[in-house]
Amino acid sequence: TEEVEKIVRELQKRGVSQEEIQRILKRNGIDPRDVEHVVRRLR
């Protein structure tokens, strides 16, 4: 989703690792598959 993408991009800008990003998003109830998808697209 748009929202997830924004969050991921923001965290990446701050130098947060992929694993940490995924952990944060999972904690916020976001589907890990969505996270994977977004992270892969932004690489």
Rank of each mutant, 00 (worst) to 15 (best):
Q18G: 10
N28M: 14
L11T: 00
E20V: 08
K13S: 10
Q22G: 11
D34L: 15
R43A: 14
E36S: 03
I30V: 13
E2V: 09
V8D: 00
S17T: 11
R40D: 15
V38A: 07
E19P: 06
S17Q: 07
I7E: 04
N28C: 13
T1G: 06
V38R: 01
E3H: 10
E10G: 07
R27G: 09
V8Y: 14
K13G: 08
G15K: 05
E3Q: 11
K6G: 05
R40H: 13
V38Y: 03
V35T: 02
Q12M: 15
R14Q: 09
R14F: 11
E3Y: 13
V16E: 07
V8R: 01
R23A: 12
I24L: 08
R43K: 12
R43M: 15
R23M: 12
G29W: 03
H37A: 15
V39I: 15
Q12Y: 15
D34I: 15
Q22M: 15
E19K: 11
R43S: 14
I21G: 00
Q22Y: 15
V16T: 07
Q22E: 13
V39D: 01
L25D: 00
E36M: 06
N28Q: 14
V38T: 03
Q12L: 15
I30T: 04
E36G: 03
E19N: 08
N28G: 09
E10I: 10
R27C: 04
K6S: 06
D34E: 13
E19Y: 12
E20G: 07
N28W: 13
Q18N: 13
E2W: 09
R40S: 10
N28D: 10
Q12N: 09
V8P: 00
G29L: 04
R43W: 15
I7D: 01
V39C: 15
G15V: 02
H37D: 15
I7L: 12
R27K: 11
E10T: 09
V38W: 08
R33C: 08
L25S: 00
I30A: 07
E3K: 10
V8F: 13
R43P: 11
Q22S: 10
E20M: 07
P32F: 05
D34Y: 13
I7T: 05
V39F: 15
V38F: 03
Q12E: 04
V35I: 14
I24T: 06
Q12P: 00
V8Q: 01
S17Y: 02
V39Q: 04
V39M: 15
I21Y: 03
K6C: 05
V35Y: 13
K13A: 07
R41M: 15
V35F: 10
R33A: 12
Q12F: 15
Q12R: 10
R33T: 06
L11I: 02
T1F: 13
G29E: 03
D34C: 07
N28E: 13
R23Q: 13
R41L: 14
N28K: 13
I21W: 07
V8L: 07
E36V: 04
Q18E: 13
K26C: 03
I7Y: 08
Q18P: 12
